[in-house]
Amino acid sequence: MPALDSSAALTQQVEIDLFQGPFDLLLTLLLRDEVDLLELPLADLVEESVTTDTDERWDLDASSQLVLLLAAMADLKGRRMLGEEVEDEPGPDAIAMREALSARLVAYAPFQRAAHWLAERLRAAQGPRYRRVPPGTAAPVPVRDDPARLRAAMDKMVEAPPVPSLDHMGVARRPLPELLGRLRESIARLREVSFESMVVDCDRLEEALTLLAALELVRRGEAELRQDVPFGDILITGVR
């Protein structure tokens, strides 16, 4: 619906049984529910609005807006009237849903009542006490007259558990100090050794550890490293 400006359509005077005054006042009253749309004689209003004096000029804009407004009111009124009918007679789906829900409630109701019965029963059954050793105090002392058995049982509890085996883990077979000693010894004997010759039969881990040992010697100022080409052999030279 196009936006309505405050044109002649809204200021037009209407005169029907229910209302006399400008059209926009009637609209306001309708919106505030002070005039019931259902009671508004739409036919009279249409007749009143569109039959203008022949003397007056026919304003096309104003008239078309008025027609739009009246059509909207007719639509609203129609819907409201239909809506009332729908409330009185709900569709088959709504009835089926209500029936299903009430059937479920009716089916479940006995259990709710049974729950009430149980609750009363519970209250009634709370009085009598049974011969029963209260939980926690009942445990008999098992070996009161046999300290040796008691000690044997205790021993098992305080015994240190066996140390778990780490055999399955890759443990360094040659610890760093050992490699350090070997390297030192070679340098002392030959003054200069090649890294490649030191790691002939070693796996990658041992290779890495040997390099670490060489670096450690450099750190301590006992050796110097030289590598002529990248990725080439490393010469380890003792410092005297």
């Binding site: 209500r98 009430s102 259990f111």
Partner: peptide, 24 residues
């Protein structure tokens, strides 16, 4: 007690339906 003892009577079931309709 038998569960039948706790079943709703006709008027009681009807009352539930009426309440549902009202709630709707």
């Amino acid at each position: 007690p038998t569960l039948e003892r706790f079943e709703l009577t006709g008027p009681e079931a009807q009352a539930i339906r009426a309440r549902l309709q009202q709630a709707e």
